[in-house]
Computed example of a mutant assay.
Amino acid sequence: MKQQAESKAEEKKLIVFLDCGDTIIDEGTEIRDEQGIVIHGKVIPGADIMVRTLAERGYRLALVADGDAQSFKNLLTQNGLYDYFETLTYSEPVKASKPSPRMFKAAVGAMDLSEKDYSRIIMVGNNLSRDVRGANELGITSVFLSWTERYPKAPADDLEIPNYTISEPQALIDLVEALNLQLA
């Protein structure tokens, strides 16, 4: 009973949604099979530490990513990260891609949250037109991981302007802690 109370006290208010490609996994290292399913890929330096640290500190994590479920299962399992996520929301079964609100709402529903929780969710991703725009349209805090040159770094319009920008995955740990304190 005491242990339950302690773990409850450690539960954080902030909820973290993470993209996968070029946010956790380096898309440049991905190897695909003949069906286009990713069968191998390496984590971005520090991304595995970021995911583990956030989970160990009591943050609820959700993967919100465009692509095939099997690709993400392969990547997260082989890199030892699959079990750190409370839910995994992929565009394939949702039948929509970011910035569609359906992607974000599917993750919100899977975590038994509602619209009133949007103010305590952050979406972290590498793509201004998908991750940032989708989060901003719903009033979810957007965090742009400006790690790669593969995607544009200049917002096309106001909806693509992130609330926060970080340049490497481990910078997310301090940002999440600071944002969580603001919610307390």
Rank of each mutant, 00 (worst) to 15 (best):
M123G: 03
N136H: 07
G58R: 00
A65G: 08
E11M: 14
A156V: 13
A69H: 11
C20T: 03
I121E: 00
M111G: 05
S119P: 07
L128M: 09
A62D: 03
D112P: 06
E168W: 03
G21V: 01
Y118H: 10
S119H: 15
L18K: 02
D22E: 06
L63Q: 05
S129A: 08
I161C: 11
G109V: 14
A5G: 09
G139L: 13
V94Y: 03
K73A: 07
R133A: 05
S7G: 12
K73G: 05
F104H: 06
F104R: 02
K42A: 08
Y151H: 09
T77P: 00
Y118D: 00
L63I: 15
P169F: 04
S142G: 03
T23G: 02
A5S: 06
E34T: 10
I140T: 01
N163T: 10
M50T: 03
I49P: 06
Q78K: 12
L81K: 01
N136C: 09
L159K: 11
D112E: 13
V143F: 04
L88I: 15
W147C: 00
I161P: 04
I44T: 02
R150K: 13
E92G: 07
N126A: 12
A5W: 13
R120C: 08
I15A: 01
L54C: 05
A106H: 08
K98Y: 11
L138P: 05
D22P: 02
E160K: 07
T165W: 10
L138N: 06
L75N: 01
N136Q: 07
L145F: 02
E137S: 15
T29C: 03
Q182K: 15
A5T: 12
Q170E: 14
L54M: 10
A156C: 08
P169A: 05
F104W: 09
R130M: 07
